[in-house]
Design a protein around this nucleic acid. Structure first.
Lengths: 252, 252
DNA sequence: ACCTGAACACCGTTCAAGT
DNA sequence: ACCTGAACACCGTTCAAGT
C-alpha cells in the first residue's frame, strides 16, 4: 500500500553528495548560516535526515564541503570580473586578465576573486577564517594558501619570508572581504536601509563617541562616508604588497 | 511551605549583569563557544533562565558583553606581558613598557596584548571578527580601532591613509592571533597531542598533497615545523608596518 | 546499498506566577 | 523590582525498520 499522500513533492532522481551540497549552498545564500538546517534540507530535498547522513558525516562536513565548492569555483575563474572602473581602466584590466600577468597582478586577481565570492556568499567569511585556523589540511586552506603563496614566491621573496608574507596577505584579504560583505548584507539594521545609509549610521555612531576617549574614531568617521569598498580593499592589498617589497628589497 | 529540597546550592548574593557576564566568560574559557548555554549558566548561577533574561537581552548580548569585558581589560594592561625571551630582552621590553613608547612600539604592544588575550580565550577570535564586521559601533570595535588607529596617526600617516592602514593592521592581528590560538587549542586532533606534534601533522598533510597541484604548499610545510608563533606573529605586524611606511614615505 | 521517519537529548526564549 | 520554572518551538543526530 502506498504511504499516505504528502504535500511536498517527492524527489525523482537519486540523492547524492553533490545534490546535497548544492542545496546546502542555496540555503546558506538565502538565509545565512542559520538557514542551513537539517529540517530545511530534508524539505528541499524531499527526504528524511537519515538519507542525508548516509551521504554526509554531519553538519560540519556539510559546511566544509559547501565552503570548498564555492571557493574552488571562485579560484578557478579568471577572477578579474567585478571592476566597475573607467572604460579605459576596464579595458586595461580585461586585457591583463588574459595576458600572463605579473605576480602582483595575480595576487590582486586572486584577492578580488575571493572578495567577489565572499560578497556573493557572505556566510563564506566566517567559514573561511575558522577553517583556515582549525582545518589547515582540509582542502580549502591549501587551495587559498597555494594561490596566494605561489605568486608571493614568484615575487622573489626569499624562502624564509614566504610564511609571513603569504599569511599577512590571506588574513588581510579574508578579514577585509568579510567586513565588506557584512556591510552589503543589510540585515543588520532595519530592512530597507541600503549600504550608504548604513555606513552613514555607523559614521554617526562613531562621531557620537566621547571625543576624549575616542579622538581617532571621530576622525575615522569622516573617511567612512561614501568610501569605495572595492578600492579600499585593493588599497589594503597594495599596502601589504608594499610591505613585502620593503622587507625583501630584492623583490620585483 | 518551602519548595522541596534541591541538590544544587542556592546562590546567597543577588544576581547582577556583571556576575552573569563573569560566569559566561568562565564557561567560554572552559568549553569554548559551545559551552556557553543557558542551561549551564543557570546551573552555575543557581537560578532559572528568566532571571538571566531580566539582566541581559539574550545570548547575543551576552556574547558581546563577554567579548567586550575581556578585550577592555586586555587593552588596559601594559600589554608587554608574555614575552618569554632572554633575561636581557625581558628587561628591555619591561622598560619600554614604561617609557613613553614610539608609535611603532605602541602598535606592537597593542598587537601583543590582543594576541595574548586571544591565546588565553580562544573563543575571542571568532567573536571579534564577527563583531568587527557586524557591529562596528558596538563598544569593542571602537576600542580596538582607536588603540591601533591612534598610533597609526602618530606615525605621520596622512589622513587619507588612516582607514587602510588601521584596518590592514587590525585584520592581520585578529586573523593571525586567531590562527595561533587554534593551534594551541589542541582539541582539534586526538587529545594528548601537543602543539609541536600538531604542527608536524599539518606539515605532513601539506607534504602529501599532489606536488603538481600544490608545489608551494610542500615548500611551506618546511617552514611550519618548529616555527616560533609569537615571533611569526610580530614579523607579520612589522611587515604591515613596513607597508605603511613604504606607502607613506613621510612617515617616521 | 540506499532511504524512511520516529525518537532522543539537547537548544534559546517566553511568560504566567510568585515574592 | 527581581526571580521561578514549566512550556514552546526549535536544533543535530541516531537507529530500527523498510526496500
Amino acid at each position: 500500500m502506498a504511504p499516505r499522500a504528502r504535500r511536498a513533492e517527492r524527489r525523482t532522481d537519486a540523492l547524492s553528495r553533490e545534490r546535497i551540497i548544492e542545496a546546502a549552498v542555496e540555503l546558506l545564500d538565502q538565509a545565512g548560516e542559520g538557514g542551513l538546517t537539517f529540517r530545511a534540507l530534508t524539505e528541499r530535498l524531499a527526504t528524511g535526515p537519515g538519507a542525508i547522513y548516509w551521504h554526509v558525516a554531519g553538519k560540519g562536513e556539510l559546511l566544509a564541503a559547501a565552503t570548498d565548492a564555492v571557493v574552488a569555483t571562485a579560484l578557478a575563474e579568471p577572477a578579474a570580473t567585478a571592476q566597475p572602473a573607467e572604460p579605459a581602466e576596464a579595458a586595461k584590466s580585461a586585457e591583463s586578465a588574459r595576458v600572463p600577468s605579473s605576480p602582483r597582478d595575480e595576487i590582486r586577481a586572486v584577492a578580488l576573486g575571493l572578495y567577489d565570492a565572499i560578497d556573493a556568499h557572505p556566510w563564506l567569511a566566517a567559514q573561511l577564517t575558522t577553517q583556515l585556523a582549525r582545518s589547515p589540511s582540509e582542502s580549502v586552506t591549501p587551495r587559498i594558501l597555494e594561490s596566494i603563496g605561489r605568486p608571493v614566491r614568484a615575487l622573489g621573496v626569499p624562502e624564509g619570508g614566504w610564511f609571513t608574507a603569504t599569511f599577512a596577505l590571506v588574513h588581510y584579504i579574508l578579514g577585509a572581504a568579510g567586513q565588506n560583505a557584512a556591510n552589503e548584507g543589510g540585515a543588520f539594521l532595519a530592512p530597507g536601509v541600503d549600504r550608504d545609509q548604513y555606513l552613514d549610521a555607523v559614521a554617526s555612531a562613531w562621531e557620537q563617541l566621547d571625543p576624549s576617549d575616542y579622538p581617532f574614531m571621530r576622525a575615522l568617521a569622516r573617511q567612512l562616508r561614501g568610501h569605495d569598498d572595492q578600492a579600499e580593499f585593493l588599497a589594503g592589498v597594495d599596502l601589504v604588497l608594499a610591505g613585502i617589497t620593503a622587507v625583501h628589497p630584492l623583490t620585483r
